[in-house]
């Protein structure tokens, strides 16, 4: 499958025309000039789009791909209406599938599988909730085990658990070699 086809496939939820829009980029560089991450990192939005146009798969293993905070400034300002942030998300989906998910990101994903929350509750917050007159445990997946089951069903259906490398026997992440 070509990189373009994979972007279309992974970004299907956002719309084919949306994620295909990198094809009309004219390399003006307004995106790079607008990027708050590009000010402080080696992330160059225009270069990433350029490499996608060239079908350069090395983008998938480039750590710079993960320097975007999804602030959408480039997306809003692009004179060719290239939906950059959506394209970045779709390309990251391919990278994640190919095993280029960082350990902290795998951990965040595992919290959702374990608790239903990317940022689960802790004892300190439980205490504070009580002091504020709120229920100690919020009325979320934290309180309702059947709701957590529903989230777990979803991640099994989409094979998200396998992609992240979540081991249901140990309820933790499988060890992975750094790619």
């Amino acid at each position: 499958m070509s990189l373009k086809d994979e972007i279309e496939e992974c970004g299907e939820i956002l719309g084919k025309d949306t994620v295909d829009s990198f094809l009309v980029c004219m390399q003006c560089g307004k995106c790079t000039g607008s990027c708050p991450s590009g000010r402080i990192t080696s992330y160059r939005t225009r270069r990433i789009i350029n490499r996608l146009q060239a079908g350069d798969r090395s983008v998938l293993s480039d750590p710079d791909l993960w320097m975007c905070t999804t602030c959408y400034t480039c997306y809003e300002r692009c004179p060719r209406e290239v939906r950059i942030t959506d394209i970045i998300r779709a390309v990251r989906n391919i990278a994640a599938r190919e095993g280029y998910m960082s350990e902290p990101h795998r951990a965040t994903a595992s919290f959702v599988i374990k608790t239903g929350h990317g940022v689960p509750i802790n004892d300190e917050t439980k205490k504070l909730r009580k002091e504020l007159g709120l229920p100690e445990v919020p009325p979320t997946t934290h309180k309702y085990p059947e709701a957590l089951e529903s989230i777990r069903k979803i991640v099994k259906k989409t094979n998200f658990d396998k992609m992240v490398g979540f081991d249901w026997d140990t309820m933790s992440l499988e060890k992975r070699e750094k790619k």
Binding site: T70, R89, A90, R92, N93, A109, G116, K143
Partner: peptide
């Protein structure tokens, strides 16, 4: 009113970056 059993939204830039299908379902 409470939304009993709600979960992580899940985060658009993080989960959306991992797997858009899982993101949309949750």
């Amino acid at each position: 009113r409470d939304i009993e059993g709600a979960s992580c939204c899940p985060a658009p830039g993080v989960f959306g970056s991992f797997d858009l299908r899982t993101w949309l379902l949750i």
